[in-house]
């Protein structure tokens, strides 16, 4: 029996879970503030490099990852307060430009501190694959998938079951209504970007062992992340996860059955297609943002 296509789907799902993780953080901050965070990919890289740093000062790997995620999250929150929030009132363009500056700064900071030569961090769980029912799968892949699911379900609970989360939803839908209801958006903005930082950093620690650490390692992940978020429908965390998987599976199948040369273009093609045909995303509700002029 030919397991080629099913295997491609399986491998895609495993890879897509990490895209989803980046995508969720991206979409939470986008939804709350309308700002597209161009530096998302650099947060991923920062997470990986800080994990490397944690290990080098003697922390055990899981602790190093948590510390890295907290530093990146807190740092992104602080950057939001200092360099993005003063700009919201002028329109989102200015805040987006500011994240471009952040992206340039983070990339060169990494290069200054850790150098341009690729570094290596170890895996949390073994990456060697085994065969089940004819499929090849590794513990690391399963672990990434489960961790992504847990974190994203955590996000869903946070957004839907807590006061803070519901506040975020309200701010996203209608900022004026939110302030009428007595919700102070400023804490929520901080939190949205901090969460995006945490998720991106964890994604960095997960992908780092596979990819090797380079100052530019985050760029493709940043793009994959927000493509995932748009495909899934901005605002729905589970949608972003599904979007990441759709993207990775589509890419794998395209490499197998179409041409590998334009694999990267496929992500953009999907992005534009979804935006034009179904702006609320494959899994999103036809909502406020998409219909705005």
């Amino acid at each position: 029996m030919d397991l080629l296509a099913p295997q491609a789907v399986l491998s895609g799902i495993a890879a897509g879970s990490v895209y989803g993780l980046v995508g969720v953080g991206f979409s939470v901050s986008f939804r709350t503030t309308g700002v597209i965070n161009i530096a998302t990919g650099d947060l991923v890289a920062m997470g990986a490099y800080l994990t490397f740093w944690g290990l080098s000062v003697g922390l055990p790997l899981p602790v190093a990852i948590v510390v890295a995620a907290l530093i990146v999250g807190l740092g992104m929150g602080i950057v939001e307060r200092l360099a993005l929030r003063p700009l919201y009132r002028f329109g989102t363009v200015y805040a987006i430009m500011s994240t471009i500056g952040l992206s340039v700064a983070l990339q060169s900071l990494i290069q200054l501190v850790w150098g341009p030569v690729a570094l290596v961090i170890p895996r949390l769980v073994p990456g060697e694959a085994f065969t089940i029912l004819g499929f090849r799968l590794s513990l690391a892949q399963i672990f990434n998938l489960v961790l992504a699911l847990v974190l994203i379900l955590g996000m869903v609970l946070l957004l839907e079951r807590t006061k803070i989360g519901r506040g975020m939803q309200t701010v996203a839908r209608d900022r004026e209504l939110a302030s009428l209801l007595g919700i102070r958006p400023s804490q929520l903005f901080f939190l949205a970007f901090a969460l995006a930082g945490v998720l991106a950093a964890v994604a960095g620690a997960l992908i780092g062992p596979d990819q090797g650490l380079t100052p530019t390692m985050g760029l493709p992940l940043g793009i994959a992340g927000f493509t995932a978020a748009v495909i899934g429908g901005l605002g729905s965390p589970l949608g972003a996860l599904a979007g990441g998987m759709v993207l990775a599976v589509a890419q794998n199948l395209a490499v197998l059955y179409l041409t590998p040369d334009y694999k990267a273009a496929l992500a953009y093609g999907l992005l534009v297609l979804v935006l034009l045909v179904r702006p609320q995303g494959l899994f999103g509700e036809a909502g406020a943002l998409a219909r705005r002029v």
Binding site: L82, P86, L87, S98, G101, V104, A105, S108, Q111, L112
Partner: peptide
């Protein structure tokens, strides 16, 4: 200099604010 890009990136943010 090697710190050029860092100054450039931070400069963008500072100027915008």
């Amino acid at each position: 200099t090697t710190v050029g890009p860092l100054v450039y990136g931070l400069g963008i943010m500072v100027i915008l604010v």
